[in-house]
Write a protein that binds this DNA or RNA. Structure first.
Lengths: 126, 126
DNA sequence: TTAAAATAGTTATCAATGGTAACTAATATA
DNA sequence: TATATTAGTTACCATTGATAACTATTTTAA
């Protein structure tokens, strides 16, 4: 809980160098790792409401980091990461990986796995 | 990370019934458990900047949940929780405890301890 | 088959928190 | 004693998050 704020500050200080914010970053992360998806999926992933995602996606679209692709369901707005988006993702990934390694220093992979497992359990209870 | 938003939403939905927000709640929690303290201490605890705490404390002061007490250091604004503050804290504590038990279902006390330990490690690395 | 319900996304608006810069007053340090 | 640091304040700005209301499309129920 109290860990969130310092973590986000540090993360945002890394992202600011590329004119990005955490909300935008997590969408790039998602699209890079899981592939094209809809806004409602992103909202579920981020745990926020649809209008919030609309705005953030629009920002990323303006930057040219994401684009819309066709979908069979005419209601959907299916988004994919662009080549430019992948480029910026990989670029930012480097200092962020560094940051993550720093904060995880002294914690074994087993411990990390354990924590992730506990978090998944909490998430399903939420 | 993605757990934060749903958690905060749930927490805030419980707090809203008493016209409180998460930031205010964590200050009440701190004062209740750790006793009177200064604004700079609270800022450290919450991982935020001083002006943010100033505002939140002022809100709580208006509600009558906290009050200023004398301090040797004339710069300091040492705050304590009032009786009213304790009353509201105990009242809200009940549904929040319930909520926490729900999300922690299936997780043993040992696992919880483990996670807290890992978090402390991460915090010191931040 | 058709109407009602549900879903995806949008727009507009508001609330809350968080940050920074600049400042004053008090305390600590050189 | 002068300078540096600290505690707190004020003002302002940015971002994210939510809700309400809505349109268009798809799904479901009658």
């Amino acid at each position: 809980m109290m860990l969130y704020r310092p973590f986000e500050n540090r993360l945002n200080s890394l992202l600011t160098k590329h004119q990005l914010q955490r909300a935008q970053w997590t969408i790039l992360y998602y699209l890079y790792h899981f592939g094209p998806t809809t806004l409602v999926e992103i909202a579920a992933y981020q745990g926020v409401e649809k209008p919030t995602v609309t705005r953030t996606i629009n920002q990323l679209e303006e930057y040219g980091y994401v684009e819309k692709i066709p979908s069979m369901d005419k209601r959907e707005k299916k988004m994919k990461i662009t080549n430019e988006g992948e480029r910026i993702y990989k670029k930012i990934r480097i200092p962020i990986d560094q940051f993550e390694m720093e904060i995880l220093e002294g914690i074994t992979p087993e411990e990390q796995e354990e924590c992730i497992r506990i978090f998944d359990s909490i998430k399903s209870n939420l």
